[in-house]
Design a protein around this nucleic acid. Structure first.
Length: 160
DNA sequence: GCCAACGTTGGC
DNA sequence: GCCAACGTTGGC
């Protein structure tokens, strides 16, 4: 059972990495995903103990800002059948859930944001899912990509 | 099952 | 605010 690596996108005006770190136990439900491909990852593949890069989209600048770890496997997203939630879906119900979420716990804020522009100009990241599948909000990434991005965001660590 | 229209994401 | 790239919807 090897760990897998993921990149989760969030608009910081909606939910930022700082918001996650302000939660009790730095833990939150990753709710509101309403895309089938991302849903499949959340429901079937993302497991407790997997690592997550937290990415800010529609930000200045956009990029990876921190890390998190998955603390609960996929389970039905109850906000879908709450008409007062931000992403209601009347087709989903407790009996027949459509959408899923995991819980994540914030770990470390990067020393510096690894911007999308920096990642785009890094040849070893050219096959990264964020470039090959634009607009997806949950991406699988490789260990190599995880490692490269973390080092880009940790210049002090890198020089030790 | 095809595909046009429409909606959303998200970089710029 | 613009718009490219996709995903979804619904008529046929």
């Amino acid at each position: 059972m090897s760990k897998h690596y993921w990149l989760f996108k969030s608009e910081p005006t909606a939910y930022s990495f700082a918001d996650l770190m302000d939660e009790p136990k730095q833990t939150a439900e990753w709710d509101g995903v309403r895309n089938y491909q991302a849903r499949n990852f959340l429901r079937d593949e993302i497991k407790e103990g997997d690592y997550v890069l937290f990415y800010h989209s529609n930000a200045k600048p956009t990029g990876v800002v921190g890390t998190a770890v998955v603390v609960r496997n996929g389970y039905p997203d109850h906000t879908a059948w709450d008409p007062n939630s931000e992403h209601p879906d009347p087709k989903s119900s407790p009996e027949k859930p459509i959408w899923y979420m995991v819980d994540i716990r914030g770990q470390v804020e990067l020393e510096k944001t690894v911007t999308l522009a920096e990642m785009r100009s890094t040849p070893s990241l050219e096959n990264c899912s964020i470039f090959t599948r634009p607009r997806l909000s949950v991406h699988p990434i490789t260990y190599e990509e995880w490692d490269i991005i973390l080092k880009m965001g940790s210049p002090l660590f890198k020089t030790i």
